[in-house]
Design a protein around this nucleic acid. Sequence first.
RNA 1: CGGGGAUUGGCGCAGUUGGUAGCGCGCCACGUUUGGGACGUGGAGGCCGUCAGUUCGAGCCUGACAUCCCCGACCA
Length: 427
Amino acid sequence: MIIWCQEDISFMLQTNLFTKTRREAPKDETSVNAQLLIRGGFIHKEMAGVYSFLPLGFIVLNKIINIIREEINAIGGQEILMSGLQDPAIWKASGRWDQKVVDSWFKTTLANGGELGLSFTHEEPIARIMTNHINSYKDLPKYVYQFQTKFRNEKRSQGGLLRTREFIMKDLYSFSATQGELDEFYEKARQAYVNIFNRIGIGDKTYYTLASGGVFSRYSHEFQTVCEVGEDEIYIKEGALEAVNKEIMNDSGFDSGETLKGFTRISEKSVEVGNIFKLGTKYSEALGLKYHDNIGKEHHVIMGSYGIAPSRSMGTVVELHHDDQGIIWPASIAPFKYHILCDNNSDEAVKQSNDLYAKLVADGSESLLDDRPETLAVKIKDADLIGCPVRIIVSKKSLEAGGVEVKGRKDSNIKVIASENLFNLKF
RNA sequence: CGGGGAUUGGCGCAGUUGGUAGCGCGCCACGUUUGGGACGUGGAGGCCGUCAGUUCGAGCCUGACAUCCCCGACCA
């Protein structure tokens, strides 16, 4: 199992990058995110609902992961890595091993014939782990999370990275002594999620959404990003990033008259990018996770669970941030900040672009130098497709005009500046 | 899981009434080009998803299976 920590990659020569862009997307991809990510060389499709991450894609994925990591650490999360192979015994204890209860398990067998599960989610494993480490109210609260591959046997995968059979999930679990403690952390987690979605560039379209709690609880909250290709439908509150999921509108116990006050009757398609649950004591009861209070009385630990799929979030970002030329990465998660395009027909441009690249590298500015022996036209097309925030062209023409040509990916205006002034520009 | 569509070089596609496969992109070589995916010439690359039939002969006909896509259902 991979540990999701990548050394920061801050610079690269494009001649060293093994991936190639392509003009046309494979015909079996219809979603914008998969088409652009494959054309740009970010991901490779292995089979339906299964993607590998190539260098550019892995850099972006890790940037998203690192943003999540920072925000979860900031609210007290401790990172761990649980196993991908799972023991059926604990799932039988909670009642979730049965195919009739959870029908999207990938299960396999041991050489001796015993059964195993492939990591589906981790409430049961973490609850069991914590039985060895939580005994007293003094041990609470605790917050534990991981980035891990999840396998789900979806009947139909679709939407590129939006619904896959194998994906990377950040799952956070909280362990509290009291409901009040859980409520307090739930609110902190909510704020952390808001920060995360703001930082990766989808915050303004992401709604805190009341949703079904499934088997966990009556209700939960989802973070739903409004997006055409979304599978969910939500009703939005005017002037606020709050919504109600359509799935609970028909819930017989749902008081639509009261709770829906202020929510529009018009639904929007949306992608679920995060979900937070108050689990209560369901899993601590099943796995025997208990603590003693200050008078020695035994109680079940109160749990919460909080998920974000970085890979799905990456797909959602592309759905929201692209034009007909390619991806427009938010600066926070772009593979590189500067994409320097060198005009190989001019020896002076080659020299100057190498100098500029060296300066940016020394400065710690993330830079990709397109040093391939291609025409500028090709490089410009590829730069638009790959979508780094700032494009810098060093050519005979730009040098004659007094320096290098600078253009923001999402801007239409182009400036020519002396390359030493680049550091003064804000993007 | 129901319904529909598809499967032919790395990618996108064509392939007539059955006669042993072609185009564009990409790739290699040379030359000319050089600011929004250039052009010419010459090359390399394919058991036509799999298996089984029909036939003298199957990319093409028949059957089964697999995979992929879409619509729907489902999505702790």
